[in-house]
Design a protein around this nucleic acid. Structure first.
Lengths: 292, 292
DNA sequence: CGGCGCGTGAAAGTAAGTTTCATGCGTGGC
DNA sequence: GCCACGCATGAAACTTACTTTCACGCGCCG
């Protein structure tokens, strides 16, 4: 877990926490600065739980104890300068909002998801994944629903620089294809929640064939962790209203971009050439003149 | 005592402190972050004094006790670090870049594309488009290549809240479908460059049938402007290396999010219900338990 | 429906922070 | 020159905060 992004990390771990710990987590995320000022007893009372649970929460998020939590929270709260109007950003969109407000809110959430994802992304894991992608003779990418678009986007990008990559929208095709993977190949599963059964099944098959499995999810402690050799996490806090797929997509795409650039950077010349060739291929479909 | 500038305040007070307190003060000023991690006994030992003196020092600088000092120090130390490395961000990715640099660069560009897009997005045009989308009995969305994913994403979102929306990956299907549009319907064309012939053709057909046409592009003066009733623009400055589809996708998706939320906001209750129903539909495919 | 495991808080235990107090040293008065 | 005073200081007592242990109870599986 990287140094920065404790709050973000906590949001990601939220579903993996027990109910009482979640109450603590929510208080902490809601107002880190305030939490950092509280004593453990105080915070426990506020979360309607015992001190023991607060300690458990600290351990759950990877810290030694409560004083460490206080200090980290204080540090993060200090770093966090409110960039935009607080009434507009952050939460849900108020019923009477005009369009300028809607735009501001969404842009803020989207941009923050991108930034926070980058902040907590582990460069070493990325490096390892890129390494595996480079060595792979075949790459398979899975994703359902909104994550399917991201999977598809990644597939297309890799293909465009000359890597053999597949994306199967259909589970049956995905399963059969995964069964044909072998050691050295790479299977990437994308699932915001980390609980998408189909994706897990496919990754499991891929892994059983000896392929390196990679998971891209918002929740590092979710079931997908059990079938992945490498975990890449996003940091999107979806509001309830825009549930499922808004900021999360952007966060996922940011990670895809990083991996893609990493892969392309390994063989700069070849990748550039491939991009030029493919760009040339669609040039005839471009319109340069204005129409009447 | 001002909220900020504790370190500065301590330096100023230094001469006024007793010798033992000065030793503590010097340690604190030299490395606030390190001091914030130490326990009182630890710091006292390091300053070759007793815990009592450390407490006196805290009181001397206007704080209640040692935990408060730790927290304030942590906060100030955090504020001191540069949020982003200016050398890394902005331009292209240097050949020898390590992965942390790659991530920082991409995140910066992606986030900026989102923010700048939102900044220049015209709320009135958005409003008009949302109006049209709400009134439409059918919505068609077109896009080729990377913009196709965005088109597809938008289609899926609209469908999910109960709007009749189509996305045709294939030009022929798109053209035939566009020919069947009528007044009041909406056709949206997505093209980063604004020169994608296929998309222009389809929009032209849609317009000739009396449908309202909307363009989403990065270049407002491009040929797509000639076939669009409403122009929505993104603000992505793609670097040459990652040409075609990186930040632009995110910018496009941000606009899609705004439109989607706008449409959903018009009929909040219905949209929410639809989202719940669709979420429920995939629930059985979710895995809650961890696997061996 | 009995057992098993997990989440939980009460209570015991430990460590950290705080107060008190005695010492010693320097300074100024007698 | 010696005593008295005050201040800085640390040892020790004390309090509070934090941590661990343990037992209860609830839900789930067999």
């Amino acid at each position: 877990m990287p140094e920065a992004g404790l709050i973000v990390a906590i949001s990601g771990l939220l579903p993996a926490l027990s109910p009482a710990e979640q109450r603590v987590a929510r208080l902490v995320v809601a107002d880190p600065a305030d939490a950092s000022r509280r004593t453990i007893t105080d915070l426990a009372t506020a979360a309607e739980t015992s001190e023991a649970t607060v300690i458990r929460f600290c351990r759950s998020v990877g810290l030694e104890g409560y004083p460490q939590l206080r200090i980290r929270l204080a540090a993060e709260a200090a770093r966090r300068v409110e960039p935009v109007d607080a009434r507009v950003v952050g939460g849900d969109i108020p019923p009477g909002a005009d369009f300028a407000q809607i735009i501001a809110t969404i842009a803020f959430n989207d941009a923050r998801a991108v930034e926070e994802t980058a902040q907590q992304l582990d460069p070493e894991v990325c490096e390892a994944v890129v390494e595996a992608l480079n060595a792979a003779s075949r790459i398979e990418i899975y994703g359902a629903g909104a994550s399917g678009f991201v999977a598809s986007d990644f597939q297309q990008k890799l293909h465009r620089i000359g890597r053999t990559a597949y994306y199967w929208p259909d589970v049956h095709s995905a399963l059969t294809s995964a069964a044909l993977l072998s050691r050295g190949d790479v299977a990437i599963g994308i699932s915001h929640t980390g609980t998408t059964g189909d994706v897990l099944d496919v990754l499991e098959v891929a892994r059983s064939r000896g392929a390196t499995t990679v998971a891209l999810t918002n929740f590092p402690r979710s079931p997908i962790a059990d079938v992945a050799d490498h975990m890449l996490t996003t940091a999107a806090r979806e509001t309830t209203y825009r549930s499922g797929a808004t900021a999360s997509r952007l966060a996922q795409l940011t990670v895809v971009d990083c991996l893609f650039v990493g892969v392309a950077a390994r063989n700069r010349a070849k990748a550039r050439k491939a991009l030029e060739v493919t760009a040339e291929a669609v040039r005839s479909r471009r319109v340069t003149r204005r129409r009447g």
